[in-house]
Design a protein around this nucleic acid. Structure first.
Lengths: 222, 222
DNA sequence: ACAATAGTGTCTTTGAGACACTATAGA
DNA sequence: TCTATAGTGTCTCAAAGACACTATTGT
């Protein structure tokens, strides 16, 4: 290997933080960039990996969310790494993209005090860098995974009813499923643990919480 | 954001190149490192991203395989990115790991002239860096994907028979499947295109090739 | 009492898997 | 003609989906 005439690339982490707003549509968290490049343009929460503190890139993602938004998402997973010479005007860069999910309710305060803005993923404004592409790819991954795992439950409060979960599932995947069959399959997986009864619109409903890690359904739900 | 007292991390690409040897076991391509760190130790083909030539990290992966092994794999996909301060003694590093698959036959010459050594993934020697972990994770991903896509076909020659494909599938997943049902399901997907008849052990068999991109089965094959 | 949602029981239909069978070669 | 492998046809059974029904609340 010849010694090189190339610079070290930039390494960043970007987080595609998604929430399901009341109207039931997926929204992504964006904030205007505080500085150049793309000063003032909307962008994903992201930043450089801090080699002095971060033990790895998930750590970076958590630190960035804590610093910029002041909270820890209920689900965070690595999605993919995007790279190239042109995606950041500062130079050749690679960005490790994380997919984060969180209940919408807890995002409202952040939105109120202007730390983030939530945008419907189907009508995004122009974004800084290649962040539009990053959002699209992350959403695609969520939709795929929602079809055969309990991942969509992370968009709900920690306690939720089965009809709520079904709604979240349907809104993420865009597919309708039969309520009786959804209930049967999801309970069979053992992904849920009963908690308490909660008042619902009419008849009260049994609430559940996720029983730790992502469980997959028998296979696909449709 | 305070201006930072941290260095840019190292960015590398490592390739987990897998092949199915005649005996039917998965093997990974390794070579002794030509220089420090870990000089002489076995490692995955990998190297720095060259910001002067690579248009992205897949490009880096292809360049590395071309330079070090002199060939282009029949399948190459990004798997995940591993990172941390200790995995490379030169400093905080991130490695984008690619999964590559290739027919074993074409690897034999490289093995003959010493460019690579192929090791059974179930009895690996000590490896440089965290490469053992990288291999394990990449193999796990292959096994998962083999269950519901045609990915395992990339371990076969470009033209192959259905019984051959079944064998590859079974060796990768470790699951036995019924020949008649395997044939039916794989043909239903439209993943295969007939080519010509080839002599087999006794009755000659119809050969097929993959009809480009990864197709997924109805769902899981078992 | 009625409307609205939660939750159950059951029938039908589909598809996965088992398996017996036919087809075509080499020995 | 026998054996080994390629490839087909069909039956069974379990699971997915459809759907009618009961249960429990608010209004």
């Amino acid at each position: 290997m010849t010694t090189a005439s190339f610079e070290r690339p930039i390494l960043t982490v970007d987080v595609v933080l998604l929430a399901l707003l009341e109207q039931g549509r997926l929204h992504v968290a964006l904030s205007p960039r505080p500085s150049d490049p793309f000063k003032g343009k909307l962008a994903l929460p992201g930043g450089f990996v801090h080699t002095d503190k971060d033990r790895n890139t998930v750590d970076s993602a958590r630190r960035i969310l804590a610093d910029k938004l002041g909270f820890a998402p209920s689900h965070l997973e690595q999605a993919f790494t995007e790279s190239g010479p042109k995606r950041d005007p500062r130079g050749w860069s690679a960005s490790v993209v994380y997919l984060a999910l969180h209940p919408a309710a807890q995002l409202a305060p952040l939105q109120a005090d202007g730390r983030v803005q939530l945008f419907d993923i189907d009508s995004l404004p122009r974004l800084a860098f290649d962040h539009l592409l990053l959002v699209e790819q992350a959403v695609k991954r969520l939709r795929a995974k929602a079809a055969y795992t309990s991942i969509a439950a992370h968009l709900l409060p920690r306690e939720f009813t089965i009809p709520q979960m079904q709604t979240a599932f349907e809104q993420v995947t865009g597919q309708q499923v039969n309520a009786a069959n959804f209930r049967r399959k999801i309970l069979e997986t053992g992904a849920l643990k009963e908690t308490r009864m909660v008042p619902a619109a009419y008849r009260p409903a049994q609430a559940y919480r996720l029983v730790e890690p992502l469980t997959d359904f028998g296979y696909n739900l449709f």
